[in-house]
Design a protein around this nucleic acid. Structure first.
Length: 796
RNA sequence: GGGUGAUUAGCUCAGUUGGCUAGAGCGCUUCGUUUACACCGAAGAUGUCGGGGGUUCGAGUCCCUCAUCACCCACCA
């Protein structure tokens, strides 16, 4: 397949002709498997598992950076593993599938848990394939033979083991706590999974007999168990210890003092509703107040006077306000715009209520995480996110890990249903037989709640490597890099570290690379609903995957949002076409039996190009190694276009060094490959001197001993070479030289001024002095050369 | 209320511990039908690096302050 006549290369590169075939060739060749040199340090990445319920979204495109790192490591010869997987995404997938059901007029309750689970499984596996195909078309060189899913049986076993040992060690408890309850999802969520939106409501001032209070939630007055005032508030001092009376029900409650109350807010008196407000719950804990529940899990009122029972919260609010008005207990009602918590997935208003849930005590478990970050055992890029993570870790509340969803990993707990006092209330075990043996076959029930998705996905790095059926955990743990979105730093990254340090006593990864959000040119987040997100397949079909990859790699830096827009992709499509045409030129000029390994540096141009190439190799290598993908990509771009195409190829039209020209193309292709894998491989396959696949070729190596003096000579020559093809070659050249001369003279003046300055400092850094002196010398040398050139020109 | 980032050319953005004449891509101007490429080439214009102070021989880079925008956390009686 090599050595095809160059005439077969079309004038413009056509990505869609090449990509699918090349990907298949890579995959069939086993290149994605970790076959590197065992004497070199391994390199591994666990792919952040995309939600298996849908196709690619803009965030997934950033996985390109992981592929760049993986391809680079592979070319360095290291054993390299990129392990892919997908996430069942509990509540979210359940929500997506419930919407599907709703189209048919069904709810999950029509199906029941078992049928629902199996239908969601089918749905998920079908959609998962779509996401995976998208990844493949992006050129991602992950080892698909190791694909894992968070609901794989062996993963579930690991999650169970973790839960059991956490419980054994006292980190897990079950308890009644106030939680963020979503009445639609019928589940509790941590603060992280709530959003706050502004809503126009009203604030009502109510008459509680001895005191007036202001509230936005009059319907919760049935659950009031106290009125709180600030102990320093002189207005209410003498009321502390007295009682107030709840209107409508005429129930007396105590007036207590708590510093939480802000005297200037509302009336300065706060109705305390521990059963339905998080802060009131805290106050209640401090004062031993009862917790009354009046909103049930569906968001309807219970335990209230008959006329309000069964109403939704909003219905009840109107009804209560009306009743208060009638009773003359409504002092004031004014509009108020305030923010309320909603569930981030479905937008339903959160009802804080008391619910029995499973919690993970995080304070103790987070300590080693803090240490690992503080002493840089784990490095976060960009470094500022280290502070953000530490700040979060120091204030994280206990984590509610149970969800009453049907789609997920069932919590392995059995409760007693008999009244046998000798039996404990619940038994944690992976094996139902144990529950039967302990409680007796009719005296227990299985927990139906599932784990929070993040509970399982946060165990992903080790759970995956332990269950591939290979020696992967030993070979690749801790992994090298975790690249993911900055927005899930808290939800996922810190928790992966926590679980890993607990379960394996090792960190899960050495480096964390965080990327921001992919936006459009106006800084708007890309999304299908906003209509600014073109399917990646559409972009790649027209402009090529390589162009899209480069647009995502260059000009976007760690932790910052990056803009993706069609003009940018076009620019890199043009780059790919430039590369294609450079290759066309080279392959047409060099003989069939050309042997780049015999290349020799002859002309000044050869020396110049070699030194440019060497610089690029150093910059690109260190760029990728230091996670400066954008800088590395830019170095690739200018090497190919400015140096190789604009200068060396132009020179080669006059004077051909075939072996070296082939060598330069060969090395450049290696450097481009992590960024633009398809086109570099396509050209590699056409080159007559190659017999391998570029994907598994070795990384570019520097060329020894290009001469600096000869390189400088070429820098002057090239002006003539390029300009000589222009009409007014003579004058353009002269102009250019004179400008150059002025610039150099200017440089000398500046450098000397700087030297004078530097000389004043007692301990001026010697390298600064030396470099300024060198600059002066270089400029003087250049001035000499340029002056000669000008004289020559003028004498013509 | 606590925190983080951004502000550099018309647009999108790079600029690592302060030290080559502040850069790139796109766009713009002029010229060019040179067989690698018009998905091109050559030449060129455009910046008080958000404002104001400070440290320094030297600040886009460090410190203080103000302004605008974005985001995160907590919260809103």
């Amino acid at each position: 397949m090599n050595a095809s006549p160059t005439s077969e290369l079309s004038k413009a590169y056509n990505p869609s002709e090449n990509e699918a075939g090349i990907y298949k060739m890579w995959e069939d060749s086993g290149a994605f498997k970790p076959n590197g040199d065992k004497s070199l340090p391994p390199f591994s990445i666990i792919m952040p598992p995309p939600n298996a319920n849908g196709s690619l979204h803009a965030g997934h495109l950033m996985y390109t950076l992981e592929d760049v790192a993986i391809r680079f490591a592979r070319m360095q010869g290291r054993p390299t593993l990129w392990l892919p997987g997908t996430d069942h995404a509990g509540i979210e997938t359940q929500y997506v599938y419930e919407k599907e059901l709703a189209k048919k007029g069904l709810t999950r309750f029509d199906l029941g848990p078992d049928k629902f689970y199996s239908e969601v499984m089918d749905f998920t596996l079908k959609h998962q394939q779509g996401a995976l195909d998208g990844f493949k078309s992006m050129g991602f060189s992950a080892d698909w033979s190791r694909l894992k899913f968070t609901l794989d049986e062996d993963i579930i076993q690991i999650v169970y083991d973790t839960f059991i040992s956490l419980h054994r060690d006292g980190h897990i408890y079950r308890g009644n706590r106030i939680v963020n309850w979503c009445p639609r999802c019928q589940a509790a969520f941590p603060d992280l999974e709530t959003d706050h939106i502004n809503r126009d409501d009203a604030i009502y001032t109510l008459d509680y007999g001895s005191i007036k209070i202001a509230t936005t939630r009059p319907e919760t007055l049935f659950a009031d168990t106290a009125i709180a005032v600030n102990p320093k508030d002189k207005r209410y001092l003498k009321l502390i210890g007295q009682t107030a009376t709840i209107p409508l029900v005429d129930r007396p409650i105590a007036i207590i003092a708590d510093t939480y109350v802000v005297p200037t807010a509302g009336t300065g008196a706060l109705k305390v509703t521990p059963g339905h407000d998080k802060n009131d719950y805290e106050i209640g804990q401090r004062h031993n107040l009862a917790e009354i529940t009046i909103v049930d899990s569906e968001g309807k009122l219970i335990n209230v006077p008959e006329q309000f029972a069964g109403l939704t919260v909003m219905e009840a609010r109107h009804a209560v306000v009306k009743a208060l008005e009638t009773a003359g207990k409504l002092t004031k009602a004014e509009p108020l715009s305030h923010s309320i918590a909603v569930h981030d997935r479905c937008g339903t208003t959160i009802e804080p209520l008391i619910s029995e849930q499973w919690f993970l005590r995080v304070a103790e478990l987070n300590k080693p995480v803090v240490k690992a970050l503080t002493d840089n055992t784990i490095t976060i890029y960009p470094s500022r996110y280290k502070r953000v993570a530490l700040n979060w870790l120091s204030q994280e509340h206990d984590w509610c890990i149970s969800r009453p969803g049907w789609w997920g990993i069932r919590i392995p707990v059995y409760y007693k249903t008999s009244s046998d006092p000798d039996k404990t209330a619940y038994l944690i075990t992976k094996d139902e037989a144990e529950a039967i043996a302990y409680y007796g076959s009719d005296n227990y029930r299985a927990e139906t709640d599932t784990f929070d998705t993040w509970f399982s996905s946060s165990q992903w790095p080790y759970a995956t490597l332990m269950t591939t059926g290979k020696n992967d955990f030993k070979d690749f743990y801790p992994t090298s890099m975790m690249g993911t979105a900055a927005e899930i730093l808290h939800k996922w990254v810190t928790r992966m570290i926590m679980f890993s340090l607990y379960s394996t006593k090792q960190i899960p990864f050495k480096d964390v690379y965080l990327w921001g959000t992919v936006t459009d040119e106006k800084g708007q987040k890309l999304s299908k609903s906003k209509g600014n997100y073109d399917e990646p397949m559409d972009i790649t079909a027209e402009y090529g995957t390589d162009a899209l990859r480069m647009a995502l790699t260059i000009g976007i830096t760690s932790g910052n949002n990056g803009a993706l827009y069609i003009e940018k992709v076009q620019g890199y499509r043009n780059f790919c076409n430039k590369l294609w045409n450079v290759a066309r030129f080279v392959l047409a000029k060099v003989p069939q039996d050309v042997d780049p390994s015999r290349a020799k540096l002859l002309s000044p141009a050869d020396h110049w190009m070699a030194s440019q190439l060497n610089t690029a190799i150093v910059n690109i290598t260190s760029g990728i190694e230091n996670y400066k993908f954008s800088e590395a990509g830019q170095a690739v771009y200018s090497l190919l276009w400015e140096d190789l195409a604009d200068k060396y190829i132009e020179y080669s039209k006059q004077s051909l060094n075939a072996e070296l020209l082939a060598y330069f193309l060969d090395t450049t292709l290696r450097l481009i490959h992590p960024f633009a894998p398809y086109i570099s491989e396509a050209i590699w396959q056409k080159a007559m001197w190659t017999k391998s696949n570029l994907i598994t070729e070795h990384w570019a190596k520097v060329i020894h001993s290009p001469s600096t003096a000869k390189s400088k000579q070429f820098e002057i020559e090239i002006i003539k070479i390029i300009s000589s093809q222009q009409q007014s070659a003579h004058s353009v050249e002269l102009d250019k030289l004179i400008k150059e001369l002025l610039a150099k003279q200017n440089l000398i003046e500046l450098a000397q001024a700087k030297l004078n300055n530097v000389a004043f400092i007692a301990n001026a850094p010697s390298e600064v002095v030396a470099s300024e002196q060198a600059r002066v010398q270089q400029a003087e040398q250049a001035i000499g050369d340029i002056t000669d050139e000008i004289k020559k020109l003028e004498s013509q």
